[in-house]
């Protein structure tokens, strides 16, 4: 019996494994997505344990303990709410400023977190991963656990603010979930690609940091882009702005005036996702151990 070489897509627990220089190169995007999800699922105990270990270590030794894990995610949000209430930034008509900012910062943090966390994980755990058989995708998945927790904490505060301001949503669940999905898929794809490039060109993470610092003001997070005059076009060409506006509209008004823009970004996110997952899958073993 001969072994079919098409089986070379590495699956840790398969009966026959082959390590060759061109391993994974022949994988299609669908195979890569399937393999990555299977990989993360196979190591779900590790994901859970790494998340809980990171979660506990972030407050270990402090006087207020777990309180910090709830307080710190709210800091950026409360700072921006404070500044808007001081009228440092223009206000948005229709929604209470605290809710406007609270929602936008939550979605912004979620999207940027999905870009920056893969970069950070690959940078900090790449050397260690060379010494183990633990896939880097597992470490990235574990880091998303913390991101999910931070997002839930922010959403919790948002709900409290909505009750306080009696600002009830008119939720379009499909529209809201769709917009959020587009944002998350787009960000994850970009994050995975940039994480690999950051190992090869270490300047990447610095450029990303600078762009995101400016990006928050160009994405309608703190104030509406309509207040920027000619730059209102960013609502269409900036995916962050498009996703934040769409998801906000779907949550608070139940409809969205510019669904075509969201659909276009949805298409781009899908294509990017297909490219990114295969790219990451092929490169993951190659970049291991590079400082």
């Amino acid at each position: 019996m001969k072994i079919d070489r098409s089986e070379r897509i590495d699956e840790r627990h398969s009966a026959v494994r082959t390590y060759v220089p061109d391993a994974r190169f022949s994988a299609t995007s669908y195979e890569a997505i399937r393999a990555l999800f299977k990989e993360v699922w196979g190591y779900r105990s590790h994901v859970a344990n790494m998340f809980s270990s990171d979660f506990r270590s972030s407050y270990r030794g402090t006087m207020f303990g777990i309180f910090w894990n709830f307080a710190l995610p709210l800091v950026p949000l409360t700072v921006y709410i404070f500044l808007v209430n001081l009228r440092v930034f223009p206000r948005h008509d229709g929604l209470a400023p605290a809710i406007f900012i609270g929602f936008n910062v939550t979605i912004w943090s979620l999207m940027t977190g999905m870009i920056t966390r893969p970069i950070q994980v690959l940078k900090s755990r790449n050397k260690e991963s060379m010494k183990t058989s633990l896939p880097i995708s597992v470490s990235i998945a574990a880091s998303f656990g913390q991101l999910c927790f931070d997002t839930l904490v922010r959403l919790g505060l948002l709900v409290l603010m909505m009750i306080y301001f009696a600002q009830w949503p008119h939720l379009n669940i499909f529209g809201f979930a769709g917009a959020l999905l587009v944002g998350m898929v787009f960000s994850l794809s970009l994050g995975l690609i940039l994480a690999v490039f950051n190992v090869i060109i270490p300047d990447t993470s610095r450029v990303v940091t600078i762009l995101l610092q400016y990006g928050i003001f160009m994405s309608g997070v703190i104030f509406p882009l309509t207040s920027l005059g000619g730059l209102v076009v960013l609502e269409k060409i900036n995916p962050f702005a498009a996703v934040i506006k769409s998801s906000r509209d779907f949550l608070f008004t139940g409809r969205h005036s510019d669904s075509i823009v969201l659909l276009i970004w949805g298409g781009i996110a899908f294509i990017l996702f297909m490219i990114a997952m295969r790219f990451f899958y092929v490169m993951e073993r190659r970049i291991r151990g590079i400082d």
Partner: peptide, 21 residues
């Protein structure tokens, strides 16, 4: 050993493992 353990990919040749390692 790292190549045999699947921690690094080779640049030439191949390793085949049957079963758990």
């Amino acid at each position: 050993l790292r190549i045999l353990a699947g921690q690094l990919l080779p640049d030439q040749g191949e390793v085949m493992i049957r079963g758990t390692s």
